[in-house]
């Protein structure tokens, strides 16, 4: 059975149909890219899966649970975490604290445990710290050491993206939804991140869905590519298959351009 299965979901914003009877599935251990022109409904799809919006129709099944009707935090605790297209870190918290927040849903210490400083709470706090450092170490030395206690806003753009991924990893998710992880990066950083996405799956065992505009990244990492246009799936397959699909070219370049080509 697929790890994530989206069954015929739709979402209207007023009169605009952002997602239209979309079917979509992700197998465990797969890297799936979602592409499409601006306004195709890619980020809306992520928002529906993570519970920020509720679909008007359809079902979203993740790991045997129906996600429709659940709150974002409940969905995250089931093992599904995301990053945001416009980097949304907790900018006034330190790098380490940002990732530690990711572990919130996996830990339990309450107010009384904390005030009484029970051994259980202290162990848990140490666990949180350790896990957070582990997640950050995945990016080599970029985010650890002296960086740990720096506020997130001093980070470079690429490091902010990395920190967002580390924070999503810390939630203990099985499936990561990465919304344009290379946006705003230079070619070298993009290449590095492409390789990193592959390592996330191969070494850490994450299943990954990413929205991406940079076709080199899409080509480099995806097992499968799903193309959206006007909220519908217009093509699906390997990069090569999709890249030569006439409907896809049409969606990206326009009908006329494709004909004259």
């Amino acid at each position: 059975m697929a790890l994530l299965e989206v069954r015929s979901i739709s979402k209207d914003f007023g009169g605009l149909r952002a997602i239209d009877h979309l079917d979509f599935h992700v197998e465990e251990g797969e890297i799936v890219s979602v592409i499409g022109p601006n306004g195709a409904g890619k980020t809306t799809l992520f928002n529906l899966i993570t519970g920020i919006f509720q679909p008007d129709e359809g079902e979203i099944i993740f790991d045997g649970h129906n996600l429709v009707g659940l709150r974002p935090d409940e969905i995250t605790r089931l093992g599904l975490a995301r990053t945001f297209q416009t980097v949304r870190l907790f900018f006034n918290m330190t790098v380490l604290e940002n990732v530690m927040v990711g572990l919130h849903g996996r830990t339990h210490a309450g107010i009384l445990d904390t005030i009484l400083s029970l051994p259980r709470q202290r162990e848990e706090e140490e666990f949180i710290r350790q896990q957070a450092i582990d997640a950050l170490s995945f990016f080599g030395t970029r985010l650890i050491g002296f960086r740990l206690n720096q506020p997130a806003f001093v980070l470079s753009y690429a490091n902010r993206r990395r920190l967002e991924i580390a924070r999503a990893m810390a939630t203990g998710a099985k499936l990561l939804l990465l919304d344009e992880p290379t946006a705003g990066m230079n070619p070298r950083e993009t290449l590095e991140l492409t390789e990193l996405i592959g390592r996330l799956r191969d070494e850490k065992g994450y299943t990954i869905v990413l929205i991406e505009h940079d076709m080199r990244v899409v080509k480099g990492v995806s097992d499968r590519v799903v193309v959206l246009d006007y909220g519908r799936k217009i093509a699906e397959g390997t990069y090569e298959e999709v890249a030569h699909n006439e409907r896809v070219l049409e969606a990206y370049l326009g009908r006329k351009a494709v004909r004259s080509a």
Partner: peptide, 26 residues
């Protein structure tokens, strides 16, 4: 004590960006 704990961090995360805090499992 609370400031430097799981709860305090969740408070601060909520102060910074409520929606993201929720998406991170808070």
């Amino acid at each position: 004590k609370l400031k430097n704990s799981r709860i305090g961090r969740a408070w601060m995360a909520m102060r910074e960006d409520e929606q993201v805090a929720e998406a991170m499992g808070v």
